[in-house]
Nucleic acid binder design. Structure first.
Lengths: 271, 271
DNA sequence: CGCTCGTTTGACTGGTGTCAAGCGCAGTGG
DNA sequence: CCACTGCGCTTGACACCAGTCAAACGAGCG
């Protein structure tokens, strides 16, 4: 929610007007000329997230925090509900989200799935996958997304060649692993209300770090099924719990925007 | 279970007779002279596990896979149920298990805890913690253990300085993260029977890789409380499920030894 | 002997899952 | 303009897995 139109939130903060993505079918490889790809004007290039870490200083910019030889990448798009990786896909490249939301998940034989994390712009799909051929999990676009593919081997070289990037990368990887550990703890021991509260608080925190929260309201493209898959609950039960929270005046989801009305109470529920 | 004494299994395969650990109080720093520490004769030094990766080739040995400047370490011991890290401890060094079992866990405000992984000889407590000051989780000795403390900064340098070690380290880290993701999936979607079956199968697999499984029997020092903490269940319910599995002739735990009597059935339960 | 630790069992409760149906809304095509 | 359709949200009735509370037992140990 950058502009304050509550009814029709603009999910896309990228390519507003300039380059409208018309392909909504499958991930399509765009121009291989890096100089003309959207990446060169990607607002994330200088951000504090993953892109900024690797790409900053590609061209002779000002004093960049991570002076680096550029890493080759190809810009791609995928529409909502499309998989950009499937379970046990082996791929030699790794994606970084440029715009939109995605999620990583493990699918189960019975058709259910466990969402392990939601990916926001600037996030790499998986730090671990950089060092594995097979991913072991899948990645799905929650909204229409833009993302960049980076060659794993090239990324490994970049990491090995620059200790500062290496440490930064590893630190974020470690933080992500800790998040998954906490997720496991929640799934093992917390009630439905607590899990949902903590999921929302976590997302709110991350959106807040990106200055995307205004008056307790932020963009929230998740369907209740996503919440269910992330918290290990059923849609029906998620719906019930959200209903309770809404009736208690703690939060409200409307038109893909989540409003936290009573943050203290929500934090109290999350414990 | 190296020797075939089923009734009284020797949990300790290290320092058998030679150097009996009498300190059973707190982790005690032993001699700082590396040449005379038990590490120099540690059977894990040349194994395929973590120690071997870093320590092999300390002295002018034969053709080692990872020729390296040695990393300083101090050998320590801890008795059963002792914590070698607590929640949010900040430590500049990281432990590698030499002998015995340990576990990493996150504690909850209500006194419960979620065990994230069991550590067997050769395992590092946490690859992620190498890049963080605070650990976010705790480590407890399941049995009496021997372990080595390695300086994190020194380890980071070793990783940055040798691409082969770095890749190997990262690959194992990635595998461990995947395990935690699977754990989360289990906790979110599997039944008690499935979770317990999968826990046991996972431990059996790891013991098998270490050639510690004979006739479906292997050393199993876990209390039912450990199983409960690892599967997000209560001791009472773990006991009931184990009782069912025993009565069905699928497995049996006796005298800290676990016997898998019907592997296929167990795998089938784990799905 | 008395203590602690770990295991075992029973009765009861309750949080979530399952099954099923209905509603609102947006898109689509006649 | 209006049916038709798919998707997501909502609600109710019921079932069941696992938690809670409580008590007892056996083994090891000082």
């Amino acid at each position: 929610m950058q502009s304050g139109a509550p009814g029709e939130p603009k999910l896309s903060s990228f390519h507003q007007g300039a380059l409208v993505a018309r392909e909504r079918q499958m991930p399509v490889r765009e121009s291989s000329d890096r100089a003309t790809t959207p990446c060169s004007s990607c607002p994330l290039r200088t951000s504090q997230y993953f892109c900024g870490m690797l790409f900053e200083g590609d061209d002779a910019g000002a004093g960049s925090r991570f002076p680096r030889t550029p890493v080759a990448r190809s810009h791609q798009v995928a529409s909502r509900r499309r998989n950009i990786y499937r379970n046990n896909d082996s791929s030699s490249s790794i994606a970084v989200i440029c715009d939109g939301w995605a999620c990583t998940y493990i699918s189960l034989p019975n058709g259910k799935r466990q969402i392990l994390s939601f990916l926001l712009p600037g996030d790499i799909t998986s730090a671990a996958a950089v060092f594995r051929d097979q991913s072991g999990f899948a990645v799905e676009a929650v909204t229409d997304i833009h993302y960049c593919m980076i060659d794993k081997a090239e990324l490994r070289s970049a990491l090995a060649g620059n200790r500062e990037i290496f440490n930064e990368f590893s630190k974020r990887w470690a933080e992500h692993e800790e998040e998954i550990g906490k997720l496991a703890t929640d799934l093992g021991h917390k009630t439905a209300e607590q899990r949902i509260a903590r999921l929302i608080l976590g997302l709110m925190q991350r959106q807040s770090e990106r200055n995307q929260v205004h008056d307790g309201r932020f963009e929230f493209p998740l369907r209740q099924q996503h919440i269910a898959d992330a918290t290990g609950l059923t849609v029906v039960h998620v719906n019930r719990v959200l209903g309770v929270l809404r009736r208690q005046g703690i939060l409200d989801i409307k038109g893909r925007v989540l409003s936290v009305l009573d943050l203290l109470q929500l934090q109290h529920i999350g414990h």
